[in-house]
Amino acid sequence: MKLPSIAAALAAAALLPTLTGASQTPAALAADAKALPSLNMEATVKAAQIDPRRADDTLTPGAKASVLLVERALRDRNLLDAQWVDGYFGTTTIAAYAKYQKSLGYTGLDASGLPGRTSLAKLGAGRFTVTRVVQPGARVSTGGVVVNTRTRDMLAEAERLLGRDLALDQGSYNPGGDPTSAGTHDGGGVVDVSVDGMSAATRTAAARALRRVGFAAWVRSPSQGDWPWHIHAAAISDTDLSGQAQHQTGDYYLGLNGLADRGPDDGPKVTIRTWEEYRLHS
């Protein structure tokens, strides 16, 4: 029997990892990652807030490709029927994503159907990479209330734009708090700003500053509900938003007032941007 040459043996050994699926070099793994499609998390979360609030099946601009990646992955896990793989992150896709989150062991805010960074990364393993990541950050105390670091930073920038400090009447992660809040403060990203001592013009200016940095913000009056004058602000695309707050941010994009009557937006007009978009353009 003729023995193989040393060169042939070495060549065969070099091919073995590829043929058997053994570990690859970091460079090879990076190349594989680059070959996967990318999912824009900002666009996906935006669609998940707006689409369930639409009266029709209009797609959220710039989100279709990323939403399709999510829907195909949910379909392949038998969580979403193929007829709903359409690039529209409506209530059916929200429900399917919530089931997926629960399958990971998530509960409460982490299983609301609004995609978070960790669940998207798990869903996309071997299928897509996640870019333009949105993260609420850790919970912190500011002004005597609890918020997350993303909300804290947004408030600080709004104060800089306004040129004055803002006092908070209510913070985030406050289930069982003020019943007039209808659950909007149960999760993250939502605050009520005190308007004590503010003129009507200053209240409007404060709401405008909050909107500019990425809040869906409205001046609330006693005539609208059983509450005193204040500014209600929900941080757009905060992945810790309660379901009720998600609906408010979706309505904000659609030109509505964030109240149960879904009336026209009565706040100052600004270009709607998330915190991440504001930072990118400022």
Rank of each mutant, 00 (worst) to 15 (best):
V270Y: 05
R164Y: 06
V133N: 09
D57L: 15
G137Y: 07
D51W: 08
A12P: 04
G176T: 02
T129G: 13
L59W: 02
E71G: 00
R152E: 11
P37G: 06
T274E: 06
M1K: 14
A138S: 15
D57A: 15
G144V: 05
T44V: 10
K99N: 14
R75W: 03
A96E: 09
T18Q: 13
E159A: 03
V133F: 04
E71L: 00
K46G: 13
L241P: 00
S141P: 07
G171C: 07
M41N: 07
T129A: 12
K64M: 10
S23C: 14
P179D: 07
Q24V: 15
D86E: 08
L259H: 10
G188R: 02
S181Q: 14
T91F: 10
P26Q: 00
V45S: 01
Q170Y: 14
S237H: 14
D178P: 11
P61A: 05
R220G: 01
G258S: 00
R279H: 08
D192L: 11
K122I: 15
T184M: 14
L256K: 10
T25P: 03
M41A: 01
V133H: 05
A13Q: 13
H185M: 00
Y278D: 05
Q244F: 02
R262M: 09
Q224S: 03
N148G: 01
G113V: 05
D51S: 09
S237D: 15
A82R: 15
